[in-house]
Structure formats: C-alpha cells, structure tokens
C-alpha cells in the first residue's frame, strides 16, 4: 500500500467510526502494522472533577481504536477486526489540558488473531500515562474461512 493510499484509508477509518469522531480523534501517523492517534483534551471527558483529569475510559477508547487501526494497517490486510481482549495498565493521571496520543503496534498476526501493544502519552513522552495489550480478531478480506 502506498503512503498516500494508507493515509486515505486511515482517514476513512476514523470518519466511519461515530464514537472516534465524538472524541475528536485524528491520525498522527499510520504505517505497516502501526498507528498513532491523537485525542484533544475535552471537559466532557473529565473523570475526576476535583482535578480535571480525563477518565480512564476515554483513554481505553483511544488505545482500543488505535490498536484496531494498527491491525487494519498490517500488511496481511484484514478486511475487518474486533477486540477479543484488552488489558489496560494506568501508570499515572493524564495532565489536564494536554492532548493525548496513543501509539499501537500490531506485532504478530496469525490467520485468525492479531496481537497488539499500545501506549498512551500526554506532552511528557518519556513517562507514559497508560499501556495496553490486546488480542484482536482477524477477518481477511475475501478469505474463505
């Protein structure tokens, strides 16, 4: 897949997901089995009103979407994917007011399953907010399963 085509597919991917749109997500980068997605700070996503820290659920959603995108961007070219299992570790509170960026890597794919790891960061890139590992279904486009 050419870079232009990949970028176009990535844009369509986000635009087709109502909840990704609702959270204002956009692609930073998309590669072969990797994806980077950003989500701007939004007061509607606050989980702790005392501090203004974004709810963990919104960060999970960012990492889940980014992981799904990394699977779709893998060279085996899956027709679609769904999350089988996702584990999220929350290392620290995201700094209020800062855009969150998730980076996911689909590091192994079989005929049926894709394995992904992801990390979520705010402006401090050296100190992740959360990490995730997940297993995703793989439905190869046009494959006779």
């Amino acid at each position: 897949m050419s870079d232009d085509l990949r970028a176009q597919v990535a844009r369509q991917f986000i635009e087709s997901i109502p909840h990704a749109r609702a959270l204002g997500m956009s692609f930073v980068e998309i590669g072969a089995g990797t994806a980077e997605l950003s989500m701007p700070y939004d007061k509607r996503l606050i989980g702790d009103p005392a501090t203004g820290v974004v709810h963990g659920g919104a960060i999970s959603t960012l990492m889940d979407t980014c992981s799904g995108a990394a699977v779709m961007a893998h060279p085996v070219n899956p027709g679609s994917t769904a999350t089988l299992d996702l584990r999220i570790d929350y290392m620290r509170a995201a700094t209020p007011g800062q855009t969150l960026v998730a980076r996911a890597e689909c590091y192994h794919v079989t005929r049926t399953v894709a394995f992904v790891r992801a990390v979520a960061m705010d402006d401090n890139r050296d100190n992740p907010v959360a990490t995730a590992t997940g297993a995703f279904t793989v439905e190869i486009a046009g494959a006779d399963v």
Binding site: S16, A58, S60, L62
Partner: peptide, 24 residues
C-alpha cells in the same frame, strides 16, 4: 446513542465504550 457506535457496518457498540462502561 448513535455516537457510541464503533462499527457502523454491523452496527456494534465501540469496544472502548464497553470498557469505559465496565470500568465506570
């Protein structure tokens, strides 16, 4: 609500929303 959809072809609720719902 339509805005919690993650897969419009099925359609299905976004996996992230499901995770957030369970966590909440």
């Amino acid at each position: 609500d339509d805005q919690i959809i993650g897969n419009p072809t099925l359609p299905a609720i976004h996996g992230g929303v499901t995770a957030a719902f369970l966590e909440t």
